[in-house]
Amino acid sequence: MSTTLSQSHSSGGNPLGGDDTKRSPLARLQHLLHSQATIGPAAVLLVAIVVFAVLSPRFLTPGNISLILQQVAVIGTLAVGQTIVILTAGIDLSCGAIMVLTSIVMAKVAADTGLPGLPALLLGFLVGTLCGLLNGLLVTRLKLPPFIVTLGTLNVFFALNLWYSESATIRGTDMPSLLLWTGQTINLGGTRVTYGSIMMVVLVAAMAFALKNTAWGRHVYATGDDLEASRLSGIRTARVLLSVYATAGAVYALAAWVLIGRIASASPQAGQMDNLDSITAVVIGGTSLFGGRGAIVGSLIGALIVGVFRNGLALAGVDVLWQTLAVGVLIIVAVSLDQWIRKVKP
């Protein structure tokens, strides 16, 4: 499979050719969703917003919108790293553990040694990148499946987190102000938006640009589309995979910074389910678990869908049990839709 075809999976157009006028409406929809992966999730998000706005007059208030954005900031940031891994037909179950370990390293080294905020932050980014690099080395050098590798490192990083933190939470009052900066807010149109949410949007834009407009991005799509064909065409697939996991680790470190600002502390027990939530956001956002098709923007939309559903259902008085059930149904529908889209015919 060529790199050009891989690009078209995410950037639009009709890479499969054929005359749309001769297809049934359902076939046209299938081709449209194949070429534009974010259309489906965007439509779901729009419908959800309209429905919940009708069900609850509080849904579209500035305070509630601010709450949704704050809740989505951590998962949305994690989803960026998870997306580039899944685009290569991999998966990263350790992303939440890397984020929490990194947050503990940032906070504890600053609180215990008096290290200023910037060096503590940079140390955290180094730790996150090295964790991602370890995942990449195990996948590329030992040829182990990403699922097994990251399942193992999930436990390793979580154990290191508990050991280093001594299972104790580091309070925000003991940290430099820079580590808490992502939790500060600014007023945008009457809505209080955190700097962490703004960083998430900037990160999504930067990664989307890199995937669409750089050779590295094209190689990521090609590697996920067909690893062997990409290798035979001259792409250094092992190097691409290594760079993807290392970059993802750095993104998880950024999520750690957002997490510290979000909860105004660093807790070894925080974000225990965030790895699954990030995968949920990516899948609902239209990125194929089989690799080679999807977009970063879709993952942000997926994170917003989950945030909107949980918030809207809570405002409607729906029990947490049924909120979880609704998200589970969304995942099943998203994966089923992906399977249908992948069967598109020229």
Rank of each mutant, 00 (worst) to 15 (best):
R141P: 03
L241P: 02
T102R: 09
I260G: 15
L321Q: 11
I65W: 05
L115R: 09
V139D: 01
G183W: 00
Q36K: 13
I263F: 04
G12Y: 04
L304S: 00
S299L: 06
S56M: 12
Q71D: 14
C95N: 07
R231G: 08
I91F: 07
G128W: 05
T83L: 07
R262N: 13
N213W: 10
N187L: 12
I284S: 08
Q70L: 09
V220I: 07
Q7E: 10
L160D: 01
L45I: 05
M200Y: 04
I186F: 06
D226R: 00
L203G: 14
V318A: 06
A73V: 08
S233H: 04
G12L: 02
M106C: 08
L133Q: 00
G90N: 06
G114K: 15
K212Y: 14
D319Y: 07
L337I: 15
S267K: 14
A79G: 12
V50S: 05
F157N: 05
A316W: 05
L130S: 12
A264E: 11
L160K: 09
K143A: 12
L254Y: 11
V127F: 08
A250W: 00
S56E: 13
L133N: 06
T61C: 06
G196C: 11
V283L: 05
V202F: 12
A264Y: 12
S8K: 09
G152Y: 01
A295M: 03
G286S: 05
R342K: 15
Q71L: 08
D112M: 11
T194R: 04
W216E: 09
R236W: 09
V85Y: 00
V74L: 10
F209K: 09
